[in-house]
């Protein structure tokens, strides 16, 4: 039973991690919490459903298309709602309020378009179960885990080994210094929102497929958990978001299996509080020391 629950936890954790990456990347660069990110995840999930069910696309076209459109949604949110505030040089609090506004807008927009109810998700992939001893694994579960790990590896590669990745890391340390290197920081910021939103879309499609459900307010709980994961791992740190996502997924799954499912969320946020008391900067977060 323990191994089974651990695998279930890793599955959910991978999804949290994908969403958490969006929070942490944006925070890393702009030092703002994009509270609309959970709703971008929801929009991504709905777009996947829309492209398959209403547009009749096969999933291998529909899902990448959904990722692209969701990325565009993320970029537009930044352009229209955050950039004007940023450029004025107002404090981070104003952007936070704007993010909450975007969140409310997206949730209500989704309710207007798709209604307030729960939709069954695309079930193009037939679920198959495999038994390994007393562990039960579905092909969807395997797919979720493999995809999460692959995407994270790809992101890690891009951030650490490519030119745009170095530009991102430079921008996250100092926008002014990055500009003085000739980096188009506005483009880097847009790319960050785009990549984070595309990853959230993948998470949205995976949640839809795994639980066979999507609804307009799904982004709230997932967004909050993923945000907790980002904080837990040390916000601004990409490996931290991955670690935090898996940890929260595993802890809440094990907690609900062994203690009580009713306290699922309490476990997730309980571990967050515990870690923050001991390590306020998060598990992999850095304490900043300035040298004069």
């Amino acid at each position: 039973m323990f191994t089974q629950q651990l695998i279930n936890g890793i599955t959910v954790g991978g999804i949290y991690a994908l969403i958490a990456l969006g929070y942490t990347m944006v925070y890393g660069i702009l030092k703002i919490v994009n509270f609309a990110h959970g709703d971008v995840f929801m929009v991504g999930s709905f777009l996947g459903l829309l492209f398959v069910q209403n547009a009749g696309m096969p999933i291998y076209i529909a899902y990448p298309a959904a990722m692209l459109v969701t990325a565009a949604v993320g970029v537009v949110i930044e352009r229209v709602c955050y950039r004007p505030i940023r450029i004025k040089g107002t404090d981070a609090l104003s952007i936070l309020i704007a993010a909450l506004g975007v969140s409310i807008f997206l949730e209500n927009f989704a309710q207007l378009v798709w209604g307030t109810g729960t939709h069954a998700y695309v079930q193009e992939i037939k679920e198959k179960n495999y038994e390994f001893g007393n562990i039960n694994l579905s092909n969807i579960q395997i797919g979720v885990i493999v995809l999460c790990v692959l995407l994270m590896a790809a992101l890690y590669f891009v951030v650490n080994k490519t030119k745009i990745g170095v530009a991102m890391r430079a921008t996250s340390q100092s926008i002014t210094s990055a500009q003085l290197m000739g980096i188009n920081t506005e483009m880097v910021i847009a790319a960050t929102f785009g990549v984070g939103s595309a990853l959230a879309c993948v998470a949205g499609v995976l949640v839809g497929t795994y639980y066979d459900a999507v609804y307009p307010l799904v982004g709230y709980s997932y967004g909050l958990k993923a945000f907790a994961a980002a904080i837990l791992g040390g916000i601004g740190s990409i490996p931290g978001a991955m670690l935090g996502g898996f940890l929260i997924g595993i802890v809440e799954t094990l907690g609900s299996a062994y203690i009580s499912a009713g306290y699922k969320d309490a476990f997730a946020f309980g571990i967050l509080i515990l870690v923050l008391i001991i390590r306020p900067s998060g598990l992999l977060g850095k304490k900043h020391v300035d040298k004069v």
Partner: peptide, 24 residues
């Protein structure tokens, strides 16, 4: 002109307080 374009034209600035990327 935007800052990143000016660098391309051939002006490089060394910032006050160095402005190195400490983590790189």
């Amino acid at each position: 002109r935007k800052a990143h374009k000016i660098v391309g034209l051939g002006i490089s600035q060394v910032q006050e307080g160095r402005g190195v990327f400490a983590e790189l």
